[in-house]
Amino acid sequence: MQVVYSFGAVGAVMVAAAAGLVIGGSAWIAVVAYAGFAVFLAGFCYRVVQWAAAPVPFRVPTTCGQQTSLPWIKSAALENPSTTSGVLGRMGLEILLFRSLFRNSQAGLHEKRLILSEQKYLWLAALAFHWSMLVILVRHLRLFVEPVPALVVALARIDGFFQLGAPDFYVSDMVLACALAYLLLRRFRDPVVRYISQFSDYFALLALIGIAASGLSMRYVTRVDVVAVKQFALGLAAFHPVRPAALGAMFAVHLTLISVLAAYIPFSKLMHMGGVFLSPTRNLANNNRAKRHVNPWNYPVKTHSYAEWEDDFRAKLKAADIPLEADHATRASAD
């Protein structure tokens, strides 16, 4: 059911994009893009501030290796960091290489055949998706910046290394498409993942697939007028939207989906892109006993003090010859 709704929602966005184009032309696209990014920026900041505003009362890292204790025991500097640099390393591994997800993976020999478990592909697909997405985003900078930064040019050149077809075929496009397809298939096929999947999960994937498909078709099939796109994009970036030549329905769909997805990010699990940096089980050093962590809302609690305890058990303590603080009750006995 969740899948159906998600398909419906993504379809509706596409229809709205096309309809908007017919009615409002490229001005409509500009409005959608600005609205989408405004919601994204405001929402994203709001959520991050909301997280950041919540204190971290306790230092609760999950330790995944040997602690730093005695000098002759080798500690796991990255899996169980006790220093800031170690934490940076751990976070780096986590964010750049998805270290924890990799832990899941298990390549094993089963009945003499090498089997990569299902989870290995999850790690691979997740990594492939996120990295190719980053490459594609950076490549897109060439549409928004003039002159195009050398880094972007270089990246595009590496990405188009195979120089197949015309225009050059980008490896990242292929990788992204495959990874997304795998991730979606996995949601459908794996009963465990299907069981836990919700509207939000399908919607995000389907929107991304829509974005990728429309982008790929513009590049390889319908061959959008790149000069016109760039003119439009530069205008958008400079807050001076220009009215370019017709960009086509595919472009409208592409940009609308991006805008809608961007606007959806702050309301969804896609916030993990910001949240991953803040996770207290990962971004704190396991130096708990070496450096005191302060809880800003620490408050006094009702305890049973030694004096009360001694009063409660004075006679028995005396009889057992256990040293006392005072020979007589210091308060009304509760015993």
């Binding site: 997800l101 989870q119 993942v193 999947s197 919700q198 699990k269 949240g275």
Partner: peptide, 8 residues
Amino acid sequence: DICVRCGA
């Protein structure tokens, strides 16, 4: 907020 339900 941030669980993506990857199933790992």
